[in-house]
């Protein structure tokens, strides 16, 4: 079953250019899908349209078969959303915020307290439970927002830049939690981000958004094939030695593209047999960043 479907979803704010342009997505249930793109690519607008904060000019979106325009409250019972424009109450503590949103989600006051404590512990922010939200550091605030989105035990999570402004350690912790939700609880995640490394770490399917248009989608392998990115063999040789048909990388390795990684043993054998002393050999698989760079021709994002 598809958890998220968008059918030619279109939104314009100035009647001239479409911020989201005929976006078609089909995200199966239980996976993490990365919708990646640079600034002004339409990621946030897409999330807002899917969450019902904006009404599309044309097209529609469905989350678990629910239309965000027609049945927003029912949809939000099944779908938690984290977006930078959705703040928490600064004058309330983290726990009070979560308890309030739990009650707003229909939980009894006592159940909301228990759920809030449970999530704060899971997300590693329990120690800050009595801290006013306005005093929360960015990383903790993001985790608190994710906890807020999880209060109603959603089956779908829409995450718009959940790791923005976080240090590596904090971002990794957040990704680990989200990854756990996908793996252990079968939650479907739509991750909108410009941080391609994190998207690759978490997601199994991707969509590349440029100026509101989905220019490519599929698994990493599919994207790499579409972009023509291949696995590369790399050899470290003695200093000053050159390897014909190979190009030298910035780290000193001599690299060559392969059709597949199965060619590596043969290539290594031939190189050694040709009299080269190979100090180290490696295979470099193409990343989402490689595919994105080729497909969008936009290196400024990286």
């Amino acid at each position: 079953m598809s958890a998220i479907i968008t059918e030619r979803l279109t939104k314009s704010f100035d009647s001239k250019t479409n911020t989201v342009d005929s976006l078609c997505l089909n995200v199966p249930e239980g996976i993490a899908y990365g919708l990646v793109g640079g600034s002004n690519s339409g990621k946030t607008t897409a999330v807002k349209l899917m969450a019902g904060l904006l009404v599309p000019d044309s097209g529609r979106s469905l989350i678990m078969d629910l239309d965000p325009v027609k049945t927003p409250a029912r949809l939000h019972k099944l779908c938690g959303t984290v977006t930078p424009s959705a703040n928490m109450y600064g004058g309330m503590t983290g726990k009070e915020n979560l308890a309030f949103f739990g009650e707003a989600a229909g939980l009894k006051a006592e159940d909301a307290q228990v759920r809030a404590a449970e999530l704060m512990k899971d997300l590693g922010i329990w120690q800050a439970r009595d801290l006013l939200v306005r005093e929360f550091p960015t990383g903790m605030l993001q985790r608190l927002s994710i906890a807020r989105a999880l209060m109603g035990k959603p089956r779908v999570l829409l995450l718009d830049e959940p790791t923005a402004g976080m240090d590596t350690e904090g971002a990794e912790a957040v990704l680990a939690v989200i990854s756990g939700l996908v793996r252990e609880e079968g939650v479907t995640v739509l991750l909108c981000t410009h941080q391609l490394v994190y998207a690759q770490q978490l997601c199994t399917q991707f969509g590349i958004l440029v100026e509101g248009k989905l220019i490519a989608d599929g698994s990493l392998e599919t994207l790499c094939q579409t972009a023509g990115c291949r696995v590369r063999a790399g050899f470290r040789l003695a200093e000053g030695i050159q390897l014909p048909d190979f190009t030298q990388n910035a780290d000193g390795y001599w690299e060559k593209e392969l059709e597949s990684d199965e060619e590596m043993p043969e290539l290594l054998r031939k190189t050694v047999e040709a009299g080269y002393s190979v100090y180290e050999a490696r295979l470099s698989y193409p990343t989402l960043t490689d595919a994105y760079t080729v497909l969008t021709d936009r290196e400024e994002l990286l």
Partner: peptide, 14 residues
């Protein structure tokens, strides 16, 4: 305070 959007993301109707 930017919390209206958060309220609209809760399972509570406008």
């Amino acid at each position: 305070r930017g919390t209206m959007a958060t309220l609209f993301l809760s399972p509570i109707t406008a």
